[in-house]
């Protein structure tokens, strides 16, 4: 069920923009090749963005308070939930890579580059999940969390090389894309397409994503404490 959306993106956009790949700047790759890593990253954002909604349901039903009066360690609630999203991201990514292969995408970068892509997706997903959790714990409104998810994901994707190479973008978008975490993950994805993987790009982007995940994780912890104080 969760995969319906990325399938639509992959198949529909893959068809719609098929000829875009003939523009200079794509380097001759087929558009489905080009699109597959981007759709994988976008799917990660969309699904991890739901993370906070679970907190809101748990708050409303008193489940969170029930957990908090149990002697389990406080950190385990946040970590356990993030672990769930990490596993889900890995499973979804593997399925999406499989489907991309089925519809004709080829990842010349090899298995290790695909692993790096999945790792990047997991880190970006954890950042998104933590952000969503922080929002949920502070604002406690289902609508806000869902709206933030949609309002954030699409612009971030369009301001990255998810659909088009940066060389085809206006200059200001290129600048934004450079600082856009979604673009960092997509850049790792791009490296899976070419046999000559630039490991410098892969590792630096992974590092930036890890730093972002840590920062937003810290924000979520602080929001969790704020919730505890407000009970």
């Amino acid at each position: 069920m969760q995969l319906t959306q990325p399938l639509i993106w992959l198949l529909l956009f893959g068809q719609l923009f098929k000829n875009v790949a003939q523009l200079p700047g794509f380097g001759g790759a087929s558009y489905i090749d080009y699109l597959a890593p981007g759709v994988l990253v976008m799917n990660t954002l969309f699904s991890n963005g739901w993370s906070g909604t679970a907190y809101i349901v748990d708050m409303e039903r008193g489940v969170l308070d029930r957990f908090l009066v149990a002697p389990a360690r406080r950190s385990s609630f946040l970590i356990g939930q993030l672990a769930y999203w990490a596993v889900l991201t890995i499973i979804q990514s593997i399925i999406l890579i499989g489907i991309a292969l089925l519809v004709g995408a080829r990842f010349a970068g090899g298995a290790v580059s695909l692993l790096a892509l999945i790792a990047g997706a997991v880190l970006l997903g954890l950042s998104m999940a933590s952000f969503s959790n922080a929002l949920a714990l502070r604002l406690r409104q289902q609508e806000t969390v869902i709206a933030a998810n949609v309002m954030l994901v699409l612009p971030l994707c369009f301001l990255s090389s998810t659909f088009l190479p940066t060389t085809l973008m206006p200059e200001w978008i290129q600048t934004v894309a450079r600082y856009n975490p979604v673009n960092w993950a997509v850049e790792i994805g791009r490296q899976t397409l070419d046999a000559g993987v630039d490991w410098g790009i892969v590792l630096s982007r992974l590092g930036w994503l890890a730093a972002l995940a840590a920062l937003l994780g810290w924000l979520a912890v602080r929001s969790f404490r704020a919730y505890q104080r407000s009970v």
Binding site: E60, R61, G62, V63, R66, V69, A70, P71
Partner: peptide, 16 residues
């Protein structure tokens, strides 16, 4: 304290 108490809140705390 958490080990020796049971707590049933107003909202049941059941995961539906």
């Amino acid at each position: 304290v958490r080990r020796v108490i049971g707590c049933v809140a107003q909202k049941n705390g059941v995961d539906l």
